[in-house]
Computed example of a mutant assay.
Amino acid sequence: MSAEFEAVLKDLGGKLTQIESVMDVDALRKEVAELEEEAARPDLWDDPEAAQKVTSQLSHKQAEIRKVTELRQRLDDLGVLYELAEAEGDAASKAEAENDIKGLANDVDALEVRTLLSGEYDERNAVVTIRSEAGGVDAADWAEMLLRMYLRWAERHGYPTDVYDISYAEEAGIRSATFKVTAPYVYGTLSVEQGTHRLVRISPFDNQSRRQTSFAHVEVLPEVEEVDHVDVPEKDIRVDVYRSSGPGGQSVNTTDSAVRITHLPTGIVVSCQNEKSQLQNKAAAMKVLQAKLLQRKKAEERAELDALRDGGSSWGNQMRNYVLHPYQQVKDVRTGLEVGNPTAVLDGELDAFLESGIRWRKQQETEAA
Rank of each mutant, 00 (worst) to 15 (best):
V80K: 14
V80H: 12
V80P: 07
V80I: 15
L81Q: 12
L81F: 13
L81A: 13
L81R: 11
Y82M: 08
Y82E: 04
Y82H: 10
Y82Q: 04
Y82C: 02
E83R: 11
E83C: 11
E83T: 10
E83Y: 09
E83F: 09
E83N: 11
E83I: 08
L84I: 12
L84C: 08
L84W: 12
A85R: 02
E86D: 10
E86C: 13
E86G: 09
E86Q: 11
E86N: 11
E86K: 10
A87H: 14
A87N: 13
A87Q: 14
A87E: 13
A87Y: 10
E88F: 14
E88P: 13
E88N: 12
E88M: 13
G89K: 07
G89D: 06
G89F: 08
G89T: 07
G89S: 06
D90G: 05
D90T: 04
D90C: 06
D90M: 05
D90H: 05
A92W: 12
A92L: 15
K94P: 10
K94H: 09
K94D: 07
A95Q: 11
A95C: 08
A95V: 06
A95W: 07
A95Y: 06
E96F: 10
E96S: 11
E96R: 13
A97C: 06
A97Q: 04
A97N: 03
A97D: 03
A97R: 02
E98I: 04
E98C: 05
E98Y: 02
E98L: 06
N99A: 15
N99P: 12
N99Q: 15
N99C: 14
D100H: 09
D100G: 08
D100N: 14
D100E: 13
K102A: 14
K102V: 14
G103A: 09
G103I: 05
G103W: 09
G103L: 08
L104H: 04
L104N: 04
A105E: 11
A105R: 11
A105Y: 05
N106F: 15
N106L: 15
N106R: 15
N106S: 15
D107W: 04
D107H: 07
D107F: 04
V108T: 03
V108A: 01
D109H: 07
D109G: 02
D109W: 02
D109Y: 05
A110T: 08
A110P: 06
A110S: 09
A110I: 05
A110V: 06
A110Y: 06
L111E: 03
L111A: 03
L111H: 01
E112S: 12
E112F: 09
E112C: 06
V113H: 00
V113Q: 00
V113I: 07
R114T: 10
R114V: 06
T115C: 03
T115G: 02
T115W: 01
T115M: 02
T115I: 01
L116M: 07
L116S: 01
L116F: 03
L116C: 01
L116Y: 03
L117M: 04
L117F: 00
L117D: 00
L117Q: 00
S118C: 13
S118Y: 08
S118F: 10
S118D: 14
S118V: 15
S118R: 15
G119Q: 00
G119C: 01
G119Y: 00
G119K: 00
G119W: 00
G119N: 00
E120D: 11
E120A: 13
E120H: 07
E120R: 09
Y121N: 01
Y121E: 01
Y121A: 01
